[in-house]
Amino acid sequence: MDPEAERPQIIQATPLQQMAASCTGALLTSLMVTPLDVVKIRLQAQKNLSPKGKCFVYSNGLMDHICVCEAEGNKAWYKKPGHFHGTLDAFLKIIRNEGISSLWSGLPPTLVMAIPATVIYFTCYDQLSAILKSKLGENESRVPIVAGIVARFGAVTVISPLELIRTKMQSKKFSYKELHQFVIKKVSEDGWLSLWRGWAPTLLRDVPFSAMYWYNYEVLKKWLCAKYGLYEPTVMINFTSGALSGSFAAVVTLPFDVVKTQKQTQLWIYESQKISMPLHLSTWVIMKNIIAKSGFSGLFAGLIPRVIKVAPACAIMISTYEFGKTFFQKQNAQGQEY
């Protein structure tokens, strides 16, 4: 018997409740997978340091960071860990030379960015999915692909200027007045579009990731529910589906993740040296340079830590989000009974 045929009517969570569920998921995900993302970015960035080592690139949980390390001598960041020879080696050197807390460095400002990005992304996906399913049918396979692409496009576009401003704030301590002056100067010199630098490679990485992730997630979730004769997925089914679909999408889109890291690094170098942005820093040229310098394998730098990070990150995020929605759905249903 097809469980879809006898699916009972379910009271859906409201958009505000979906936002609360996504906030909880973003918080737990950032806390639990930050160290893996830090290692991933450092493995990618160690071959792309500026001559004086002033560029420090890392990522915590859901957002990337770029800071300027002005210290010289033995205290400079780029001299502390030495050269990493793999994921485990990076973990051990970071902990030994910088302390275990370094694996969570920059977490507070990351959460400030991660929470609105996650809220926009997951809430838009659910709302778009509901609209598309009402028009195309519940079993239409294109729904998760279209909804995932549009939701990610919107989230990246809205958050991109805030990420640039946050990056500037992390380079040194800024007052709100100084930050306002920086934004005004940036816009007057380079135009409003300068606030979206790094937007293209981010889209090239995140939009295909979202399309593949949501499609595979919905397919796996339905398959597992049908296999065990369930009307609704359990936490374990959501966790497993999220981990598997996230791992697959992470491997396919890794080259664009590497390019994004290097493009952001170069952008900050030119910004810190007050040099105008060179025209040749396109995504495809950077990709060609990586292949010429490190071979095709250079596009997959940090593969192991990215997969190890993305699998639990997607699993924790989606299972927490779905659990939160289910909780609110039950509360809504109980409220209607009274």
Rank of each mutant, 00 (worst) to 15 (best):
T240R: 00
K227L: 14
S194N: 07
S276I: 11
W223L: 09
L193K: 14
S241M: 03
D257Q: 15
P255H: 02
L220R: 03
S276C: 12
M236V: 09
R197M: 02
Y215C: 11
L193Y: 10
K221S: 10
V251A: 12
S247I: 01
A211F: 05
L267R: 07
T253K: 04
Y215I: 07
D206T: 04
F239P: 02
A243C: 00
T234F: 03
F239Q: 01
Y213P: 00
G242Y: 01
Q262E: 15
P278A: 01
T253Q: 09
Y231T: 12
A226R: 15
K274S: 15
W196M: 07
S210M: 07
I275A: 08
G191L: 01
K263H: 14
W223F: 09
E271Q: 15
Q264I: 06
L203S: 02
L193I: 13
N216P: 05
C225L: 01
W223M: 11
S276Q: 14
Y231S: 12
V259Y: 05
E271R: 15
L203C: 07
G198M: 01
Y231V: 05
K221T: 13
C225N: 11
Y215P: 02
F256Y: 08
L193C: 10
V207G: 10
S210Q: 10
D206V: 02
L279A: 15
V219T: 11
W214G: 06
F256C: 04
P278F: 01
S194L: 04
T253I: 10
Q273P: 00
Q262V: 15
V251M: 07
K222F: 05
V259Q: 08
V258Q: 06
M212E: 06
K260S: 07
I275H: 08
I269L: 14
V251Y: 10
P278M: 03
V251T: 09
Y213I: 04
A226W: 08
S245L: 03
E218R: 15
T265Y: 02
V252Q: 08
P255R: 06
L254N: 11
T253C: 13
S241N: 07
E218L: 12
